[in-house]
């Protein structure tokens, strides 16, 4: 703690990558929260101006229906971030629950849960999510749940390991000795102390979730047209790649920059706070 006070967190020029990532994330967040500030209607089509190259009037050009690609990319931030956050939310919530359960149970239940985490993580994320969506049908909700379920084992395993450490800690054994109830023990003593690594893990996980969501939307499994989702935009523009690269390359850049920024920022925070839960 004292060390952190002596060296306050400042953006140093030694880390231009981190600075750029933070700026980009701030812009993306602004776009997601308040898209109207940056861009006009993403659904306004203009059949007389289709597939026009980037210009002063249309910074990112127009797509096959004459919609402004910049407007769509800005509005797409909301879809992508919301889907990513919701998916990570589900994964973290379920992961913590199951991880705690595994960490606190007796051998047999722990084994069963751990093996099912192993089984889940043996499948590639996209395959598992596709399987889920094949059953439930496409749409934003299935996308969120599918990615949430597919990324859950990462969090569950970390929480399980943390729980093992914490349950043997002195304050827990003492609380048991004082006769604390099981619920109180878990909620007051174990849970707060296992959550430490989660925020940074979730931040990096968010990048992964956004990438997966864009990939699944590209395949038509996510928000349906005309929603301005980044993956769906790349997919819609791919038929025109030869004559209008901007319609799919620029939304693709948005995905790339978001994921890289989240990873860079997440790794930086991870390094800074490593070992300090």
């Amino acid at each position: 703690m004292t060390l952190a006070l002596e060296r306050p967190v400042v953006l140093r020029p030694r880390r231009p990558g981190v600075a750029a990532a933070s700026v980009f994330l701030a812009v993306a967040l602004l776009a997601a929260l308040w898209p109207g500030l940056l861009a006009a209607d993403p659904l306004a089509a203009d059949p007389f101006h289709v597939l026009e190259a980037p210009s002063a009037a249309h910074w990112f050009g127009t797509d096959q229906l004459g919609r402004d690609v910049f407007d769509r990319v800005v509005h797409g931030a909301r879809h992508s971030l919301a889907i990513g956050l919701a998916a990570v939310g589900i994964a973290v919530f379920a992961g913590v629950l199951l991880g705690l359960l595994a960490g606190l149970s007796h051998r047999f239940a722990d084994e069963a849960l751990s093996r099912s985490f192993d089984a889940l993580s043996a499948f590639p994320l996209l395959l598992l999510a596709l399987l889920f969506i094949a059953i439930t049908g496409p749409g934003s909700v299935s996308l969120v749940v599918a990615i949430g379920l597919a990324t859950l084992p990462t969090y569950a395993r970390v929480i399980r390991t943390q729980t093992f450490v914490v349950r043997r800690a002195g304050y827990v054994t003492e609380a048991v000795a004082f006769g604390a109830s099981r619920a109180r023990l878990v909620l007051r003593h174990v849970l707060p102390n296992v959550l430490g690594p989660l925020p940074i893990l979730a931040m990096i996980g968010l990048g992964e979730a956004i990438l997966a969501a864009a990939g699944l939307s590209f395949l038509g499994m996510g928000p349906q047209p005309p929603s301005p989702e980044w993956g769906a935009m790349i997919s819609e523009g791919r038929g025109y790649l030869r004559i209008a690269w901007w319609a799919s390359v620029l939304p693709g850049m948005a995905v790339t920059l978001t994921v890289i920024s989240l990873t860079v920022a997440g790794r930086y925070l991870q390094r800074r706070f490593e070992g300090r839960a």
Partner: peptide
Amino acid sequence: RRDVLAQAVQAAVKQ
């Protein structure tokens, strides 16, 4: 590209 045509019709009748 009848799917694209449908989206163009969709946007036009809305507007």
